[in-house]
Structures are given as C-alpha cells and as structure tokens.
Amino acid sequence: MKVTSAEIVISAVKPEQYPEGGLPEFALAGRSNVGKSSFINKMINRKALARTSSKPGKTQTLNFYLINEMLHFVDVPGYGYAKVSKREREIWGKMIETYLTTREELKAVVLIVDLRHPPTNDDVMMYDFVKHYDIPVVIIATKADKIPKGKWDKHLKVVKDTLELEPGDHLIKFSSETGLGKEEAWAVLQSYMKTEDS
C-alpha cells in the first residue's frame, strides 16, 4: 500500500466523537512505550505524525488517523503504565472497551508487542479480550532489528506460546527502524478491508 496522505482527524473519548463515514478502522493496542507511534509513522512513511513520547502513558484519547482517505488507524491509550492513577486507568479501560465492543467499522485489532521480551500479562489480557469478542487480531512483534536474525524464530515462538496464539492469527515480525514487516502488515490489513467488499 502506497500511503500518499495521512492526518490525525480527531482525538475522541466517547462514541459521539468518533468519525462518521463508515471507513474501515484498525485499532492499535499495546503497552505504553512498546513503539505504537513508531509503528504508525513507519506504516505511513512519516517521521512524526504520531508523536512518540519519552513519557509513557501520554496518549489518553482514541486518536483517529485518516490514511489515503480510505481507512483509519485508531491509536488507543497504552496499558500497563504504573504512574497513572487507578481511577484514570478505569476511565481509559471503559473508553477502550466501549470502542472495541461497539464500533462496527472496526476490522481488526493490531496488538503490538516487543519481540525482545515475552508478552506481558496485560498483552495476554488484551489478546484474550479481543478473542472473547471475536474481533480479528494481528500481532505485530516489533523491535526485530534489536535481535540477531538467527534468534527470531525462538523469540516468535515465545510470543506464540505466551499468548496461546490461535491458528489463523497473523504474527508479523516488524522493525520501525528497517521497515521489516511493513509490506506484510499492509497486505494483512488490506485483506481485512477486502473481505467486506467481496
């Protein structure tokens, strides 16, 4: 997919703020600091449309990015960040849950994990949540460039085993440094957009 335009259209906290128009949407989930912004920027060939922050827990809204006027990436607040109050976490949790369980335009959840480490309990919970609601999920294992190629398979197996990945779920190794996995990720996302038209 050649991205020619990308812009953030709205930061929403409740359903009435979600964009209209019925375009397919992909929610990007992952723990704070896992590299969601870098993933977005790499996918859309921009240096800094999604702001990467040295302060995790910065995204507190659902950020809708319109890409090529044909789909939205929806960046959801990172989870597992300790410095946020329990109350705030509950508010985000509700906001994310409402979006994921009620949004008809949602085609799949892109769950971003760090290939260098086993998925966290929060990652496992998110995967189980998405499976429970029967939402398609694509696992992006990022920071692959930080691991020697010969060890990729071993690390991918740890991700699969920890999440208890179901057959048919895509697991893509990715690097926002080198662009590894970018074409494959776009191909998979586009396949979810097509199923509807056919």
Score class of each variant (00 low, 15 high):
Lys107Val: 06
Thr52Ala: 11
Glu20Arg: 12
Arg51Trp: 09
Ile112Tyr: 05
Lys146Arg: 15
Leu111Val: 01
Glu88Arg: 04
Leu165Trp: 06
Arg51Cys: 04
Tyr133Leu: 04
Thr162Trp: 05
Glu69Met: 10
Thr61Phe: 15
Glu69Asp: 15
Ala27Lys: 00
Lys14Tyr: 13
Pro148Asn: 12
Leu115Ser: 04
Ile96Leu: 05
Gly22Pro: 07
Val124Thr: 03
Ile139Phe: 12
Val74Phe: 10
Lys2Thr: 06
Gln190Phe: 11
Asp123Tyr: 04
Lys42Tyr: 00
His117Val: 00
Gln17Leu: 10
Ala82Ile: 07
Leu66Pro: 13
Pro148Ala: 10
Lys83Ile: 09
Val109Tyr: 03
Thr4Ala: 14
Val74Gln: 00
Leu115Thr: 00
Ser191Asn: 02
Pro19Trp: 07
Asp122Leu: 08
Lys173Pro: 15
Ser176Phe: 04
His132Val: 00
Val110Thr: 00
Pro24Gln: 02
Leu189Ser: 14
Lys42Gln: 15
Ile96Arg: 03
Lys143Met: 12
Pro19His: 08
Tyr81Glu: 04
Ala50Thr: 05
Asp134Asn: 15
Lys55Ser: 01
Lys2Leu: 15
Ala185Phe: 00
Ile172Ser: 10
Glu20Leu: 12
Ala48Leu: 05
Asp122Asn: 11
Leu71Ile: 07
Lys131Met: 13
Thr102His: 07
Tyr18Gly: 03
Trp186Ala: 07
Ala144Asp: 06
Met1Ala: 15
Asp123His: 03
Lys173Val: 03
Phe39Ile: 09
Phe39Val: 15
Asn63Val: 10
Val138Ala: 11
Glu20Ile: 13
Val34Tyr: 01
Phe64Asn: 03
Val159His: 06
Ser11Lys: 13
Val138Trp: 06
Ala6Arg: 01
Gly78Ala: 08
Met126Asp: 00
Asp169Gln: 15
Ile147Arg: 11
Leu115Tyr: 08
Gly35Gln: 02
Ala12Gln: 05
Val110Phe: 02
Ala108Gln: 07
Leu115Val: 01
Lys83Met: 08
Asp145Ala: 06
Gln60Ser: 04
Pro136His: 08
Ala48Val: 03
Pro167Ser: 13
Ile135Ala: 14
Gly168Arg: 12
Gly179Trp: 02
Gly150Leu: 07
Asn45Glu: 12
Phe174Ala: 08
Val159Tyr: 09
Lys146Tyr: 13
Thr59Cys: 14
Thr98Tyr: 05
Met43Trp: 02
Asp75Lys: 06
Tyr65Asn: 10
Met126Pro: 03
Val110Glu: 00
Val74His: 06
Thr4Val: 15
Pro77Cys: 12
Asp145Lys: 07
Thr52Met: 00
Val76Ser: 02
Ala29Val: 03
Ser176Glu: 06
Asn33Lys: 00
Glu166Gln: 10
Ile40Trp: 09
Lys182Pro: 04
Met43Ala: 10
Asp134Phe: 09
Pro119His: 03
Pro56Val: 10
Asp122Cys: 01
Ile8Met: 15
Arg51Leu: 14
Ser53Tyr: 04
Glu16Ser: 13
Asp128Gly: 01
Met125Ala: 15
Glu20Met: 09
Leu180Ser: 11
Phe39Pro: 05
Glu69His: 14
Ser38Thr: 08
Glu20Lys: 15
Leu71Asp: 01
Glu184Ile: 05
Lys146Trp: 14
Leu165Val: 09
Lys146Phe: 13
Leu62Arg: 07
Leu28Ala: 08
Glu25Ser: 10
Tyr79Pro: 10
Gly80Asp: 09
Ser191Pro: 00
Trp152Val: 04
Leu71Met: 11
Ala187Asn: 15
Leu106Cys: 12
Gln190Met: 14
Thr101Pro: 08
Glu88Phe: 06
Lys14Asn: 14
